[in-house]
């Protein structure tokens, strides 16, 4: 088994086998990340460039740690969001990257398709760390890894994704990923924040959270941004919370062993009560831990560690 592409741009285009390879590779990576000496030399001498056009401490630090555990040289290029507004194209950045001789580029960008644009310009492997509302494949993979670790499998599970689906790249990646792995995906949110025809992906759309939660094995809450209220997409946080917030009572609608997930950062008391966020069923902190292992697997595989079972034994 070998990856069939140079870049990780999204889960929509990934094959099931490739998803499995990444998740399987993350298992030994998690063991390494739990050692006292969290370092293996496999990517020694490789250069990984992180370009974040949006502030994201969580994802950036996760990638940096992953690179360090694998002994890669990792460089952060500070890229102001203002340069995007100014219309400074990603292609200008691409020229810089090529000059640096990077092996892998990790990019976070506020515009959909930016990672793809970069991928077509540079020889380095491009890892999409979030492009606008399009995809956030590494988050999707770490969510799948977390669920698989807890449930043993993804096939046949019911995954409920609740919140602002319209603006969520996490939702999109998880919809693609979980559906490919044979799970059912229920999505739920206000009609104003439900992208048109999303049901054509195979996800089932609900507007009552109770219906979406019924029998769910996994509950994935999305962060609601206050700016959306100003844009007229929902009337108030209070009403949002009342209609779409996850609280203790609603938690009982899901399966007794349902997992509670959130890509973070959590708005406690808005999309999820503090009590549920800290509930024993919540795996929000484990998502962060697993994020490093999954990104180690991704960096390893996309930096050249493709695989074949027998040939090299």
């Amino acid at each position: 088994m070998k990856l069939k592409r140079k870049d990780l741009l999204g889960l929509a285009g990934l094959e099931t086998q490739e998803i499995n390879l990444i998740l399987d590779t993350a298992v030994p990576m998690k063991e390494i990340a739990s050692r006292p000496v969290k370092k293996v030399p496999v990517l020694r001498g490789r250069t990984i460039v992180n370009i974040f056009y949006e502030p994201s401490t969580r994802t950036r630090v996760s990638f940096e740690l992953a690179a360090k555990h694998l002994s890669a040289d990792s460089i952060n290029i500070p890229a102001a969001a203002s340069s995007v507004v100014k219309g400074e194209s990603i292609k200008d950045t691409a020229r810089t990257i090529a000059a640096m001789g990077a092996d892998v580029v990790v990019i976070r960008h506020p515009l959909a398709g930016a990672a793809q644009l970069l991928a077509g310009t540079v020889e380095a492997a491009v890892i999409n760390a979030g492009d606008g509302a399009r995809e956030h494949p590494t988050q999707g993979l770490l969510d799948m890894f977390t669920v698989r670790e807890k449930k043993g499998t993804l096939a046949g599970l019911k995954v409920a994704i609740i919140g602002d689906i319209l603006h969520s790249r996490v939702a999109r990646s998880n919809i693609w990923g979980f559906l490919k792995m044979g799970a059912q995906v229920a999505i739920c949110g206000p009609a104003t924040m439900m992208p048109p025809e999303i049901n054509r992906t195979g996800a089932v759309v609900y507007h009552r959270i109770e219906d979406a939660l019924e029998g769910a094995d996994v509950i994935m809450m999305l962060r609601i941004q206050r700016e959306r209220q100003k844009a007229g997409l929902f009337p108030s946080l209070r009403e949002y919370s009342r209609l779409f917030g996850l609280n203790r009572e609603r938690l009982f609608l899901a399966k007794p062993d349902a997992l509670v997930m959130h890509p973070g950062p959590v708005n406690r008391g808005v999309e999820i009560t503090g009590e549920v966020a800290d509930h024993p069923r919540s795996v929000i902190n484990e998502q962060v831990t697993n994020g490093v292992a999954v990104r180690m697997a991704i960096l390893y595989l996309f930096a050249g560690g493709g695989t074949d079972d027998e040939a090299a034994d």
């Binding site: 606008g132 999109r172 048109p196």
Partner: peptide, 13 residues
Amino acid sequence: HEGYVSTILGLTG
């Protein structure tokens, strides 16, 4: 255009 393709691409429709 706002529709399935914009939904998938994450582009504003």
